[in-house]
Simulated assay, not measured.
Amino acid sequence: MVKLVSPPFILPGGTVVRVARPSSTTSSSPNLSRLTVVWVQTSGVPFRTTNFFAQLIRNGRVVSQAVFDPFGVVVFNNIGTLTQVSYQLRTFNPAGILQRVRTIPAGVEAFALIG
């Protein structure tokens, strides 16, 4: 399971603000029901990904393949969240040339592919 860390809230001038937490910090279910990947530049802006596609690999076998939308997002409709196992993510350009390979850990509902 991946340990999630909350980003700090910093006011102009560098003052860190602490946010009161609700009594229960666990959600009964994930917000995203299907594994979602967003491919972004180092600035956080999504890439234009028209006709790009991605594959999820587990134990050397393709378990899912999906097409990116034009705004850097791909949703794997047959992979529920939170993921139970890790996957290798492979992304391809429209010509089918491999662009990136990353590992998505178990226990996530979304993954940011940076760069």
Rank of each mutant, 00 (worst) to 15 (best):
N59E: 07
Q55F: 06
S86G: 02
L56M: 03
N77L: 09
A54V: 04
S64H: 11
N59R: 13
A54F: 09
T81M: 10
Q55T: 14
D69Y: 06
Q65C: 00
L56F: 06
F52I: 01
V73G: 00
Q88K: 14
N77E: 12
Y87Q: 11
N78T: 15
L56V: 00
L82V: 14
G60Y: 10
F52S: 06
S86M: 04
F76Q: 03
N51H: 13
F53G: 02
A66N: 03
S86A: 10
N77S: 15
V62W: 12
V75W: 06
Q65S: 13
P70A: 11
V75Q: 14
F53E: 01
T81K: 02
Q84A: 11
G60D: 10
F76R: 06
Q88P: 06
S64M: 06
Y87W: 10
G60A: 06
N77F: 07
R58P: 02
N51M: 03
P70L: 05
T50K: 09
F71C: 06
F53L: 00
F68E: 07
F71Q: 15
T81R: 07
V75I: 15
A54I: 10
T50R: 13
I57K: 11
N78C: 00
T83F: 05
Y87F: 13
Q65A: 00
F68I: 03
N51G: 03
F68K: 01
T50P: 01
D69F: 11
S64T: 03
R58Y: 04
G60H: 05
L82W: 13
L56D: 00
R58H: 14
V85L: 02
Q84M: 05
G60P: 07
N78D: 12
A54H: 11
V67K: 09
V67I: 04
R58E: 13
F76N: 04
L82I: 11
A54R: 01
N59L: 00
L56T: 10
N77D: 13
N78P: 00
N59G: 02
F71N: 13
G72C: 04
V62N: 11
T83K: 01
L56S: 04
Q55C: 13
I79D: 05
I79Q: 07
P70W: 03
V62C: 02
T83C: 00
F71R: 13
V67E: 12
F68G: 12
Q88S: 09
N51W: 02
N51K: 10
N78L: 03
G60I: 02
P70N: 12
F53H: 09
L82E: 15
V73K: 10
N59F: 00
V74H: 03
I57G: 01
V63D: 07
T50F: 08
R58M: 06
R61N: 14
G80P: 06
V74G: 09
V62G: 02
Q65Y: 01
F52K: 02
N77I: 06
G60N: 04
N51F: 09
T83P: 01
R61I: 03
V85K: 05
S86P: 08
A66Y: 08
Q55M: 12
V75L: 12
S64W: 02
F68H: 13
R58T: 00
F68S: 08
V62Q: 07
F53N: 07
P70E: 14
